[in-house]
Simulated scan of single mutants.
Amino acid sequence: MLTSVSFAQEQKGFEVISPAEYQEQIRSEQIHLIDVRTPEEFAESHIEGAKNINFHSNDFLAQFSQLEREKPVYLYCKSGNRSGKAAKELADMGFTKIVDLKGGFLAWKEFVKE
């Protein structure tokens, strides 16, 4: 029997959270906010304050190796596929807190609509 309900999904070394939780957390913490989409996707639109590190670039992991591993990393991509793969890579690199946006930027855009 479950004693509590959580919207976060625990994965190996990272968690996947709803756009509402994501929005709250990226406002309240000193974090790395990383968009792992292509530069073209990033240029079209992105979450304010995000840095673009293209998942498909040859130096993807090298770019992350320059970030503080103790600082939380919040990832997103278009739908959650690339950022989920990136999260697994970062967990293997020793990042201590990794958070992925459930549903990616598509879910974010729907959430922030008024």
Rank of each mutant, 00 (worst) to 15 (best):
M1D: 11
L2I: 08
L2W: 13
L2F: 13
L2S: 11
T3G: 10
V5N: 00
V5S: 07
F7C: 05
F7D: 10
F7W: 06
Q9G: 10
E10I: 03
E10R: 13
K12Q: 13
G13N: 04
G13T: 04
G13F: 07
F14K: 04
E15W: 13
V16F: 06
I17N: 02
P19V: 04
P19I: 03
A20V: 10
A20F: 14
Y22S: 05
E24W: 15
I26E: 01
I26H: 00
Q30I: 15
Q30P: 03
H32N: 12
H32W: 01
H32S: 06
L33S: 06
L33W: 03
I34L: 01
V36C: 01
R37Q: 03
T38Q: 05
P39E: 11
P39R: 07
E40D: 13
E40R: 10
E40V: 09
E41C: 08
E41T: 03
F42S: 10
F42N: 08
E44F: 05
S45E: 14
S45D: 14
I47P: 01
I47F: 10
I47R: 06
E48P: 08
E48K: 15
A50G: 11
N52P: 04
N52D: 00
I53Q: 05
N54T: 06
N54R: 09
H56T: 13
H56Y: 12
S57T: 09
S57W: 08
D59V: 05
F60A: 02
F60Y: 11
L61W: 01
A62T: 12
A62P: 01
A62S: 14
Q63N: 11
Q63R: 13
Q63T: 05
Q63W: 04
F64S: 02
F64W: 04
F64T: 02
S65H: 10
Q66S: 14
Q66R: 15
Q66L: 15
Q66N: 14
L67H: 06
L67K: 03
L67S: 08
E68A: 15
E68I: 08
E68C: 12
R69G: 12
E70I: 08
K71C: 06
V73T: 02
V73F: 03
V73W: 02
Y74Q: 08
Y74A: 04
Y74L: 09
L75R: 05
Y76A: 00
C77G: 07
C77N: 04
C77I: 03
K78H: 14
K78Y: 12
S79V: 08
S79D: 09
S79P: 06
S79Y: 00
S79N: 13
G80R: 07
N81Y: 15
G84S: 09
G84E: 12
K85H: 11
K85G: 07
K85W: 07
K85T: 09
A86R: 07
A87N: 04
E89N: 15
L90H: 03
D92I: 09
D92F: 14
D92A: 15
M93Y: 09
M93F: 04
F95N: 04
F95W: 06
T96C: 11
K97P: 08
I98Q: 00
I98P: 08
L101M: 09
L101W: 02
G103T: 10
G104W: 00
G104L: 03
F105G: 04
L106T: 15
A107F: 02
W108C: 01
W108N: 01
K109M: 14
K109L: 14
K109V: 07
E110C: 00
E110F: 07
F111K: 02
V112A: 08
V112R: 11
K113H: 14
K113F: 05
E114R: 15
